[in-house]
């Protein structure tokens, strides 16, 4: 039986999530794994927006900020359960993306980049400045999700690290599954047509503006949920989560791994999340290495690491 790309990706991901802990030298690696999954979720959104619909955003960390602060604020001020706060954050992000997306998605290339950048900076500015609500740059505590305690009561006792590893792993699997379903749907095909040529897509009757907006909203929801998971996991969040560098990080992860494919983007998330952990001995050289990797991959593996390598393998096989 031949696996479709979709089931191959999901199966590989599930196997990695389930089996990787067998090879962990210490329980610390659960933490790294959980971070990779959280970042993986955010970059899956970037794949939909940038890889498939061909639109750039340098402001998606703003949505992660909304998701994160929803989890910090909604339980305290609205009495919502943290899980409800995740949904509320996603809803706010979606509405905001819909409102902002309509005007800015008319822009192209660098102009879209600066517009989305402005949007992200505005969100992070509000989080920094509205001290009475967000407690400002020093950050704010986030309530406990409570699920780990519930599992323990039900007889499944996981350490904090283990719990978040598997919880975020499952969330990523779900996110990847939804994205891959979208890829194979009529909307997904229309999106890719749009990436090929906007004008061509328009001439065959695709509602280009609506489609771009859909991709923008969906990717905002992914970023928002990833921000929520980060906040719940750390039980503490600062406005850095919405900062420009976090936006750049998301795009870089996706593009390095391969922005056209979910598997590639998640691989990119893994590499860039691991990099600072691997380079601690050379912490002084971390930025040099990161910069070099970014430039070299973009020059020599233009589609990103995973698609370029897959192509080489396929090429050799034929």
């Amino acid at each position: 039986m031949r696996l479709t790309q979709k089931s191959a990706t999901l199966l590989a991901l599930a196997v990695i999530v389930a089996l990787a802990p067998l090879f962990f030298p210490s329980s610390f690696y659960y933490r790294v794994g959980a971070l990779i999954f959280v970042n993986g979720l955010a970059v899956t959104g970037i794949v939909i927006l940038t890889g498939w619909a061909g639109q750039i955003s340098l402001g998606h960390a703003g949505f992660a900020g909304i998701g994160a602060y929803a989890c910090a604020l909604a339980p305290v001020h609205l009495g919502l359960h943290p899980a409800g706060a995740v949904l509320l954050g996603a809803a706010i992000s979606a509405v905001l993306a819909w409102l902002v997306g309509r005007p800015i998605l008319r822009l192209k290339g660098y102009y879209l980049a600066v517009a989305s950048l402005g949007m992200g900076i505005l969100i992070s500015m509000v989080l920094n400045n509205e001290r009475d609500l967000t407690r400002g740059p020093d950050g704010i505590d986030v309530p406990d999700l409570g699920l780990r305690g519930a599992l323990k009561a039900a007889g499944l006792d996981l350490s904090n690290g283990q719990f978040w590893y598997f919880f975020c792993g499952i969330a990523l699997l779900l996110g990847a599954w939804l994205a891959l379903n979208l890829f194979n749907s009529p909307t997904g095909r229309a999106l890719r047509a749009l990436h090929g040529s906007e004008i061509a897509a328009r001439t065959v009757g695709i509602d280009v503006a609506r489609l771009k907006l859909q991709a923008f909203v969906i990717s905002a929801v992914y970023a928002s949920v990833s921000g929520s998971l980060l906040a719940l996991q750390n039980k503490f969040i600062t406005p850095d989560v919405a900062g420009f560098m976090h936006s750049v990080e998301m795009v870089t992860m996706a593009v390095l791994g391969g922005v056209g494919s979910v598997a590639g983007a998640i691989f990119g998330a893994a590499v860039l999340t691991l990099l600072p952990q691997v380079l601690t001995v050379f912490a002084e050289y971390e930025q040099l290495v990161l910069g070099t990797v970014m430039v070299l991959v973009m020059i020599f593996l233009r589609e990103g690491v995973v698609p370029s390598i897959l192509r080489k393998i396929r090429g050799a096989g034929e």
Binding site: S26, F28, R31, D138, G161, N234, D240, Q277
Partner: peptide, 28 residues
């Protein structure tokens, strides 16, 4: 970056098994 700080603190505790921690340059 507070998120990185948390990761490194976890590493210090669970991987390096230090007996004490100094740090946290910023409040975050």
């Amino acid at each position: 970056d507070p998120n990185k700080a948390r990761t490194f603190a976890t590493r210090l505790v669970e991987d390096d098994e230090v007996v004490a921690i100094i740090g946290g340059t910023t409040t975050g």
